[in-house]
């Protein structure tokens, strides 16, 4: 039973990884790529780690515990890294794709960027 659940989680996780990487190749600008890649690869990796924990739960508690810790780290760090990269990309002058409809951040003159430098 747990074998089946683990195998399904593994397959779904790897399919999400593939979808995320495909999004990074296909989508038109860096912000859209960041969206697709961050969301899909985060959940995909968490599912793969969860599948490893489920598949080995009978033999060793160590793998399950470390897998859970790894999931916690990835869920905390990956959106933070995406946020830092998006802000860095905007500050380094990368324009949004020409099909974009709004850029309130540029319209407001990038508030917050100056605050960081004065600290």
């Amino acid at each position: 039973m747990s074998d089946t659940i683990g195998a399904v989680m593994l397959a779904v996780g790897i399919l999400f990884n593939l979808a995320g990487c495909l999004g990074m190749v296909r989508l038109p600008d860096v912000y859209n790529r960041l969206q697709a890649a961050t969301k899909c690869v985060t959940l995909g990796t968490c599912l793969v780690l969860g599948a490893v924990a489920v598949l080995t739960a009978g033999q060793s508690a160590a793998i399950a515990l470390r897998g859970a810790l790894c999931i916690v780290f990835i869920v905390i760090t990956s959106p933070t890294a995406a946020h830092a990269l998006a802000r860095g990309a905007h500050a380094s002058g990368v324009k949004l794709w020409e099909g974009s409809v709004a850029d309130a951040y540029a319209a407001d003159g990038e508030p917050g960027a100056a605050r960081e430098e004065t600290e």
């Binding site: 990884n17 990074m24 790529r33 960041l34 780690l49 793998i63 990835i74 995406a82 990269l85």
Partner: peptide, 23 residues
């Protein structure tokens, strides 16, 4: 920034590899 995003994602994919290796 495109390259930086790809490097970030590559790092997470490597974590997947280590999980598979431990399995």
């Amino acid at each position: 920034p495109d390259r930086a995003v790809a490097i970030d994602i590559l790092g997470i994919v490597v974590v997947c590899f280590t999980a598979l290796l431990s399995l």
